[in-house]
């Protein structure tokens, strides 16, 4: 949690960023990674952040997760919750079994053993890995590892989930299934999700709202609500239409840097 984390101004905001700026480096090497980013995410909303690589998406998630401090501005998470963060790589602990990986956040919160057992079993059922608890991460496929990472993040019992291109390294079929899975878990658990991707179709498939970030400095340049009813398919015409619109905006933005 950052020191700037305070109680929310209104109950209708799960995550609020106001004027968030992040500067890396000093002197001649300064990089303005984020420039006065303001954003309100409603409780239960699924927001996708889209932008070219290097535009500050990971930086933004790290700041919201409290792993780094903003250079300026405020970040507020409702009820002082600590958001859970998922990365492109599963970031599982290779020395622990699947069960033990999921158990780590529970242990760190001092939950007694019997209760931990139950929670781990429940979480592994949620991600359909009940039979794989005794395996080690290296024995699983990429998609399965990412599901373990999701279960481990859910073990934080946090209402806010931050995801940094979590399915970027997976094949298309696995990714489609994980979209369904994530959507189901998001609904069942009333989660608020801030999801970073550079895949505009993925954004159109998942998001309630898509936000486009510009590069150098990272700023919010455009956003759109996705009104397509759920469940959605990534290859449906409605999703494709939204994706096309976002792609056009993204191309214009990237083209701005050509000169």
């Amino acid at each position: 949690m950052t020191p700037t984390t305070t109680t929310p101004e209104s109950a209708t905001t799960a995550v609020a960023l106001s004027g968030v700026t992040k500067v890396y480096g000093r002197g001649t090497n300064v990089v303005l990674a984020l420039d006065r980013v303001s954003l309100d995410v409603r409780p239960g909303e699924f927001v996708c952040l889209v932008g070219a690589s290097g535009c500050g998406k990971s930086t933004l998630l790290n700041l919201v997760a409290g792993l780094d401090r903003p250079s300026g501005g405020d970040i507020t998470v409702a009820d002082g919750a600590r958001p859970g963060l998922m990365f492109q790589e599963p970031a599982l602990f290779p020395w622990l079994t699947v069960e033990a990986n999921v158990e780590v956040p529970l242990k760190l919160r001092g939950i007694p053993r019997a209760a931990r057992r139950e929670r781990v079993a429940e979480l592994l059922r949620t991600v359909h890995l009940a039979d794989f608890g005794r395996k080690r991460p290296h024995e699983l496929s990429g998609g399965m590892r990412q599901r373990v990472a999701l279960a481990r993040t859910l073990a934080l019992d946090t209402p806010v989930l931050l995801m940094d291109e979590p399915f970027g390294a997976l094949d298309a079929m696995t990714r489609d299934i994980l979209h369904d899975e994530l959507e189901r878990i998001w609904t069942e658990r009333n989660l608020t999700v801030l999801f970073v991707t550079h895949n505009v179709r993925e954004a159109a498939r998942l998001a309630d709202r898509i936000i486009l970030l510009s590069s150098r400095p990272g700023r919010i340049i455009w956003s759109t609500d996705v009104a397509v009813p759920r469940p959605r398919r990534i290859d449906s015409p409605e999703v494709a239409a939204i994706a096309a619109e976002v792609t056009d905006r993204l191309r214009t933005e990237v083209g701005r840097h050509a000169a």
């Binding site: 790290n62 997760a65 792993l67 600590r82 859970g84 963060l85 990365f87 790589e89 970031a91 602990f93 020395w95 622990l96 780590v104 956040p105 242990k107 760190l108 919160r109 481990r152 993040t153 934080l156």
Partner: peptide, 27 residues
């Protein structure tokens, strides 16, 4: 560093980070 960030996000700080991440990773 990725494991350190994951550990911190899961709530490991100070000694907890050593016990759950740094010591086993350094083994």
């Amino acid at each position: 560093p990725l494991l350190l960030r994951a550990g911190r996000n899961l709530g490991a700080h100070g000694l907890g980070l050593y016990r759950y991440v740094i010591a086993p990773a350094a083994l």
